[in-house]
Design a protein around this nucleic acid. Sequence first.
DNA 1: ATATAGGTTAGAGTTTACTCTAAGTCAAAT
DNA 2: ATTTGACTTAGAGTAAACTCTAACCTATAT
Lengths: 123, 123
Amino acid sequence: MYTISDVAKLLGITAHTLRYYEKEGIIAPIRNANGERVYDDSNLAWLRFVMRLKQTQMPISQIREYAQLYLEGEHTAQARLNLLEDHRNSVQSQIRNLTATEKVLADKITAYKSFITKGTGIN
Amino acid sequence: MYTISDVAKLLGITAHTLRYYEKEGIIAPIRNANGERVYDDSNLAWLRFVMRLKQTQMPISQIREYAQLYLEGEHTAQARLNLLEDHRNSVQSQIRNLTATEKVLADKITAYKSFITKGTGIN
DNA sequence: ATATAGGTTAGAGTTTACTCTAAGTCAAAT
DNA sequence: ATTTGACTTAGAGTAAACTCTAACCTATAT
């Protein structure tokens, strides 16, 4: 069991952001007798997955959609699978994009280095 | 020589966005007698590179910084190289991130498929 | 007893990157 | 001559994702 600031520290985000995610329907931790949020390990695992989705450019609206489908039960499994497959395609396309740009950058970096040491033309 | 809407079409963005990039100090096309923007091939090549940087999450502020260094002349070559190397590192880290997430998604997708056809547990 | 360190809410403010509007200019087509 | 289409500017508006503030509550340490 974790407090909001425990979770914030573990995920490297702020408590403000966690409350915002809750307001956006991404997570719903239980409350203790004092009205304070209590996160368990399954909440933490879900939030870690959310962080992955965010780092790979899935918008909050789509993460919420997935979370809501999960709450609606097993009959939404196909819809969730579709969402995951769409995102996987997006991830693969981002990788292609980044790989191509990495090559362009590598070439430019080589050209700059040779310009700086030898005075060759820049592109 | 290209008009603003030629360039917009070629890059798949709007003329509004091109004017915004100009306001942000990312590009400075010349004007014709009529005060209209005229883009040449070097402008186009630069904008295509800008699109790459954007697609790989470089913020406008950093793209502007690179553009301004370029305008300041050859003595900024080292500073530009540093910027490019920093961004290359960011691109490489994004690729690692996306690759790891792709694996997580692949596993989840497999689990969902097996749940949908055979009724096995979901993660 | 009270100060401190945390938690709560509703809601306002900020940043980034556009996106659009209004009012106007200008050249070519009808 | 006037309509049409494409351009110009300054500046307002929008969407996403936070980020912060104010006012308040509550358990623990001094």
